[in-house]
Every structure is written in C-alpha cells, then in structure tokens.
Design a protein around this nucleic acid. Structure first.
Lengths: 250, 250
DNA sequence: CAGTGGTCTAGACCACATT
DNA sequence: ATGTGGTCTAGACCACTGT
C-alpha cells in the first residue's frame, strides 16, 4: 500500500513525527539495515508526500538520537556499531590523564539461567524467563580494569553461544546487531561505589574490599525494548568514568 | 551601529552561526539577562536582516544547549538556574528507587586560598592565583549524602563571602548568576570510587574506609570559561549517580 | 558531471498565552 | 484580538562526494 500520510497536517499532529515513525518502522522491519544508506531526502519526501523540509526535521531528530548518520554528499546511513568514535558513546571509562583506549576483552564465563526479579524488572520480562548470563573481563594496556556481568533475554538472542562470543572480533553491540538484528542506541546508567568481593577482587587483581565503581546499565533498542542488563565493576585506581554533558560543537 | 550581517551568505559561512554568535554576544554583554525574554524571532530576523527560519535555526541550537528556553506563546527566555527540573541537569544523585529530590544544604567551611597546580589546570588559571574554597554538606531526607568541596576563582566572584553563601536560599549556580553574572551551562564530570577518610567519614556519618563515589566536576559558562571545580563525595548506600544518554522525547 | 545533504528564504497557517 | 513560538511548504542555491 501507499506510505502516503493522511495529510492530517491541520490536526493536532506533527507531520514530521509521523514521518519519523514511518522511518523507524522501516528500520524495525529491516527494510534498511545498519550500515546501509536510506533513500535521499527528496525521495523520502515524495514517498511520504511531504516537503523536504519536513523530512529534514524528522531526520534531524533521528540523527541527533544517533539512529541515523548523515554524510554530506554521500547520503544518510543507518547507525552501526563497532567503527570509530561511536564506540565511545557506550564506553565511558577513560584513563585518568584523559586518554581513551579500546579495551581488550576476555570471556570469563557463559551460562544460561532464569531471570531473577530484579533482572526481569530491568529487562521488561517475567521473573523466571530464560536469560543468558556472561562475564567479560576488559583490560586497558594489559591491566584488568573492568568486569562486565551481562544479562540478556534468550528470547532476543536465541542463537547466542559461548563460541560466538569467543570468536567475535567486534564489540558485543555489533554482535547483537549482526547476529540478532538488535541495534542498541540508548543506555541508562546508574553508578555506585562498592567493595570488591573475593571473586571479583581476584579477577581484577585488587585486594578484597578495594573500592570499585559499580555501573548498572540498561541498554535499549529504538527507545523501547530493553535489550541488555550489565553490571560493570570498575577499578578506578588509574581510570575513571567520564560524563560530558551538553557538548556539541563550537 | 547596525547588527546587520554582511550578507555573506554565499561564502563558506553559515548565516545562522553568525546569528547565534550575535545572540551569545548580547547575552555576554548583558543586554538580555538570565530569566528575561529576548526579542521575538520576527524582530531578531529584522535586526539581523535574515529570515525567520535562520533565526529559528540559531535559537534551536542555543535552546538545545540550554542557553535559551523557548515557551510557546510567551517568548524565548535566557536560561536561569534554580527553578524546576533544570536543576536536575546539574544534580545527578537520585535515590535508588529512582526518586529525584531536592537536597538541603549546610555550609561547613569557607576560606580563601591559593590554587594548587591541579586546581589551576582545571580552572584555566595560574597556580597560586587566589581562589575561594568552600564545603557544602547536602542532605536528602535528613540523611547526609553528599559532601561538596568547591573551588572557584576569586577573580570571577570578588564579592563572595561566607555570609552570602549562608544566607542564600537558591542554588549556588543561581547565586553565581545573580551575584557575578556567571551563567553555568555546561559541566564535565569524572567519577571514581574511593574510601572515606576520617573527616569526610564523620561528616557523612559512615565508617572510615567506607566506599564513596568521588565526582570531580568542572563547570563552564558559555562553553568557554571554567568557573568552578567541585569534588563531590557521595555515599551511595541508598543513592546513586544517574546518567541517561540520548534521552529526548517519545 | 549528477546526486546528495546543508543552508536560506518568504510566506502561510496552527497552537498557545496574555491582554 | 494580538503576539508568540511551532509546523509546513516550495523552491533556490551552496558544498561536498562520487563517477
């Protein structure tokens, strides 16, 4: 059928919001996949029967939300994980002198289990639902710095396995994307100070009781579905958690 | 003289950026003060000799950066601290159940001193320059939760005093604004886990050695001048540090 | 070169707030 | 009723990217 909108411009609607939702729809159905170009703004305008300015406003927002990436002269692309500085939108640990480095990752543990009530609430699933639980140890300059304890619903990633996680060379969000078509674009994090217990102290090579940062992250796709629950234990002796607010251009 | 722009539209410039800078100029010179309305978009368009659309794009950015606040039907206002939810753009500690509360503040200490090298580097001043140092204890529901150790250049706040800090009823950023015309609009924060030492443990009523969150914040005005250096020690037994990334509307 | 996103215009109409 | 910001249009030209 036609994608043409209902011309409901005069109503309480916002045409560009409808356009935005149509675009998100096409992203969800997989018509345009991560890394691909979407049609030009002119063509989108024709398809949705709106002016280019309206398409631009919709794409403006999606681009501000990192769902789409514009490149002048080339086109507009569906955001994709793994490459370049986009990685650091989801990796906030920096060295205390400010240097940002890519971590090396070691899979410590992988298991299938059931969601406890807290995890279920965080992931919008039912207690007892099947989940994968796995643990990564992240090192920066050969120093173990971060312990990631990750929980994801089996339902979303039916084919996940220890092998897939071990053999990957990409980031896990890239893996989620390629493996299951799940595109993480938003996270919510809560940070506390805690103490290293025995097992975690051993892995991070700190004394038991050493202060650690605990970052609890919930990752979401297209601002709705909760995709991953992650507990990150961070040794902040030489690194820190960085937050820059309201930082655009000059 | 005229504010009219050089009509350099065809050049490598961006007209709306020039408009944006003109607006920032008027903010810096104090032509429009925090809390006041600025002229309507139509009038700004006439004044700068550009179309309304161009003014809108400039105001769009300033509004996204929290420098200006738009209110439909009323006008566009210069951002001002203290009121409403804007406060929480700069206050990231929430109760573990997610509730956001306003803290009550107690001034613990106030002194004049000299910037040590680290503080000087953070504040873009010279080591040895005069600074104010003061300490606030923030409580949520009658529980001491945050210890703020704050350093600001005397140069920026020549008339700051213990009395002014004690007698204020507003937030300190509101005070900076009213007292010295300094408008904080951007912060950068670095978070680490640490242990409570004797003095801080006593104030926060936790055992010595208790894990605390240490948040180091540098606050800036109009994205250039470093205004304040703040070390916040947070007891995260019942509260946590909240970060929401890429969260606009629905 | 053709095609893309980026900027700018001039005017229309809407939704909202104030008088 | 008036004035404000918010949305939408239709078309022009620019800057950049690829062929």
């Amino acid at each position: 059928m036609s994608d043409t909108l209902s011309a409901g411009q005069a109503l309480g609607n916002h045409l560009y919001k409808e356009v935005k939702h149509k675009i998100l729809e096409s992203l969800r159905t997989g018509e345009w996949k991560p890394g691909e170009v979407i049609p030009s703004e002119k063509k989108l305008g024709e398809r949705f029967a709106v002016s280019i300015g309206t398409v631009r406003k919709a794409v403006d927002e999606l681009s501000a939300e990192n769902v789409l990436i514009r490149q002048q002269g080339r086109g507009t692309f569906v955001a994709s994980h793994g490459r370049g500085k986009y990685f650091f939108s989801f990796f906030h640990i920096v060295r205390q002198d400010g240097l940002r480095e890519f971590p090396s990752v070691e899979l410590i543990d992988f298991a299938r289990g059931q969601a406890d009530p807290a995890a279920a609430a965080a992931l919008d699933i039912h207690p007892g639902d099947k989940v994968w639980r796995y643990t990564n140890l992240l090192s920066l300059q050969d120093q173990a710095v971060i312990l990631d304890e990750i929980t994801v619903p089996v339902e979303l990633f039916p084919r996940l396995s220890e092998r897939v996680l071990r053999e990957r060379r990409s980031t896990v969000y890239q893996l989620y994307q390629e493996h299951a078509g799940v595109n993480v674009i938003r996270t919510r994090e809560r940070v506390r100070a805690t103490r290293a217990d025995g097992a975690r102290a051993r892995l991070l090579r700190v004394p038991v009781g050493h202060p650690l940062l605990l970052v609890v992250r919930i990752a979401r796709s297209f601002k709705e579905r909760a995709v991953e629950l992650r507990h990150s234990y961070v040794n902040t002796d030489r690194h820190e958690y960085a937050v820059d607010l309201l930082g655009d251009e000059a």
